[in-house]
Design a protein around this nucleic acid. Structure first.
Length: 426
RNA sequence: GGAUAGGUGGGUGAGUGGCUGAAACCACCGGUUUGCUAAACCGACGUACGGGGUAACCCGUACCGCGGGUUCGAAUCCCGCCCUAUCCGCCA
């Protein structure tokens, strides 16, 4: 969530940013309500502190008087303290109300987009940051979509997943399973080469962790929950990995902190059904290698570019046609300040599929998570967090299968050979 | 699942009602000494919120797992919850 301090000091910038997210004048009213509530909070804080200070002072006096045996005087002071106590109790309740109200309002405010984020309402308004200049793979008319290829070559089985679990839980098998594992291995190796520490986190997290990255309180419905133990299946590795630094104050020299993790991702998704979600296009469980960085505020946007280049390199190595989009204000995620999406061209479906999303959250996540760093002067400041998929598997697999199909079988990108142990699926 | 023990500052750990935001030691940081390193010595050393100051900083309040209670006053007493460790059982 945004810091009240920032809303106060840079109100105009925040308001402009929210407009870029197409906030109406009506919605923007919450900003003034936040500031007003915070004013009240501060005034109440002062009043409460004063009352407590006085009551502490009197209590000490009582102790001294008792020591001297002056019982009557002590009794008189006790009454005063009782009055103060009633007052401070009321003030405290009021404080709690104000804080809750403030939090509730802050939770509704999305991150303020970076100044370079374009205006816009829908995905059509996203800016193409880097287009695919070369021709798309030319496939014959009888080219198959990946779900047909999967049947033909026995790579994954969605019906079997229904039997075992339900819709949206693919069962990979044979060379399909092997390809999956090869990609994970490849992505992790590349991330480690780029200086990321490999993390293998738990796939279930508790409430505090889910709250830290903003899944709770309001996106609860996106996650699978284990009721009995009050744990959530992670929707992305970002959740456990970023939370590693929750409530920490790290020395500035440790920045940036770079971590990568492979995890399966579980998403309940309330989304649509139909042609666009066939096959692996949208599933409840998929594999993903995530890259995360905790960075100094002065360098976070440089780092965002570096992360984009990392993903770009992966796409190039896989020899897949892709483009990079700079998301417009209306299409960006709630917590993000700036997001680049990667889309891979799916030759048989003849459309772009999102395979990566790289974002800078500035201090939006770290504020909620209390992830801070201490600079050389000893000053404590919120760190910036960034993350990106590098990469999400299911759709990459779909693209590889479709784009690389030939009459002789599906050609595996060269860079994966050492991981798959085969060059072709036939 | 059963039985015990325990949760205090970055770590170890003292602290059973006021003089404890918290001893001591270790680590970290600054300094002295030193050819360098080490050792030794000196000093500083929690976080949040609020108030004051251009600022270094100063003042107030809260925080000893979390929440509530007793009391003029709670790390300390009482109640509830959560968590961790160890042993037993079960199990990859």
């Amino acid at each position: 969530m945004l810091q009240v301090k920032v809303i106060r000091e840079e109100k105009q910038r925040i308001v402009n940013g929210l407009r870029k997210r197409n906030w109406s004048a009506q919605q923007l009213k919450v900003i003034d309500r936040i500031l007003k509530t915070d004013d009240e909070r501060r005034a109440t804080q002062k009043e409460l502190d004063d009352a407590l200070a006085e009551s502490n002072r009197l209590s000490k006096q009582i102790g001294a008087l008792m020591g001297q045996g002056k019982k009557d005087e002590a009794e008189a002071l006790k009454n005063q303290v009782t009055v103060l106590k009633t007052k401070s109790k009321e003030l405290e309740e009021h404080m709690d109300q104000l804080k809750n109200l403030l939090d509730e309002m802050l939770y509704t405010v999305p991150n303020c987009p970076h100044k370079s984020v374009p205006k816009g309402k829908t995905p059509e308004d996203n800016k193409v940051a880097k287009d695919w200049k070369k021709p798309f793979p030319a496939l014959p008319d009888d080219a198959l979509p990946h779900w047909e290829l999967a049947k033909k070559y026995n790579l994954f089985d969605l019906e079997l997943g229904v039997k075992l679990t339900g819709a949206g839980f693919p069962v990979y098998r044979g060379k399909g399973a092997r390809l999956q594992r090869a990609l994970i291995q490849f992505f992790l190796d590349e991330a480690v080469k780029a200086g990321y520490e490999e993390i293998l986190p738990p796939h279930l997290v508790n409430e505090d962790t889910a709250r830290g990255t903003g899944q709770l309180p309001d996106k609860e419905a996106q996650m699978y929950k284990c009721e009995l133990d009050n744990l959530y299946l992670i929707p992305t590795a970002e959740v456990p990995v970023t939370n590693i630094l929750r409530d920490e104050i790290v020395p500035v020299k440790d920045l940036p902190i770079k971590m990568t993790a492979y995890t399966p991702c579980f998403r309940r998704e309330a989304g649509s059904y139909g042609a666009h979600v066939r096959g692996l296009n949208r599933v409840h469980q998929f594999d993903k290698v995530e890259i995360v960085q905790i960075e100094h505020p002065e360098r976070s946007y440089q780092t965002l570019q570096a992360m984009v280049r990392h993903v770009e390199k992966l796409m190039n190595k896989l020899e897949l046609p892709f483009r990079i989009l700079l998301l417009c204000g209306g299409d960006m995620g709630f917590a993000s300040a700036k997001t680049y999406d990667f889309e891979v061209w799916s030759a048989a479906q003849k459309r772009w599929l999102e395979v990566s999303s790289v974002s800078c959250f500035e201090s939006f996540q770290s504020n909620r998570m209390k992830l801070r760093f201490r600079d050389a002067d000893g000053k404590i400041e919120l760190a910036h967090t960034l993350n990106g998929s590098a990469l999400a598997l299911a759709r990459i697999v779909a693209a590889i299968l479709e784009n690389n199909q030939t009459p002789e079988g599906i050609l595996i990108p060269k860079v994966l050979w050492k991981y798959t142990g085969f060059k072709r699926i036939d």
